[in-house]
Amino acid sequence: MTAGQLADLLDGRVADPDWLAGAVDRVARDPDALAALFPAAGRRCGRGPLSGTAPRSETGGTDPAGWTVDDAARVLLLTALPLSGAALAEQVEAVYRYGSADEKRAVLRALPLLDIGAGGVEILHDAIRTNDTRLVAAAVGPYARHLDAAMWRQAVLKCVFMDIPLTAVDGLDRRADGELGRMLGDLADERRAAGRTMPADADILLALIGDLPPEG
C-alpha cells in the first residue's frame, strides 16, 4: 500500500475532495497546519467504509479493506508531511498524543507508510496499553514488526483476550512461536477452569502452534 494507491481508493468517496486536496497541499508546505486539519478530516471527508469489501475487524494492517474514508484521508495527510526520520516521528507523535481515538487509529494505520524506521514504536506500545479494541487492533498491523518478540506476543494475547479477530495480526503465520503457544495454552486452561471458552480463531491457532517447542 502506497500513498498513491490510497489516493486512488479515495477517489469519488470523499465528501469534500477540494478540502482534502487543499489540506494535503497545506500540510506539504506547513507541517504545523496538521494540528487543526487532522481532526477535521472526519467531518470534511466522511466516516463511511472505504471499500465496502470487508468489515474492519476482518482485516488488519494497511489492507484498505475495512478502513474508513477518514482513516485514509488522515493517512494521506501524514504522508504529505515534508519531513523524515526523527523530525517526522516527533510530528507524528504529537498528532497521536493529542488525537481522539479515531485520529489515533489513523496514525497507527499510517506508521508503515512513513519514513521513520522504528521511530514510531513507542506509539504502538501506547496503543497496546489501552483498552480500546480499535487501537489495539490497529497496533498489530505490519508496523508491529518493530515490536520485540515479548511485546508482540503480549499484543497477540491481548487481541485474544479482547475478542479482536486474529486476522488483524499481521505476519501471524510467520511469527507465532512456541512461547505464544504456551501462553495461549495457559489462557485456554484458565478459561476451561472457569467454564469459559476461547474465541474460535484462537483455538485454531493453539492447535497449530501448541506443540512447537517453547522458547529456550
Binding site: A35, A36, P39, A40, G42, R43, Y98, S100, D102, E103
Partner: peptide, 9 residues
C-alpha cells in the same frame, strides 16, 4: 484548548 476545540466529538 485550541488543539482540543478542533476535535470531532
Amino acid at each position: 484548548l485550541p488543539r482540543y476545540l478542533a476535535k470531532d466529538g
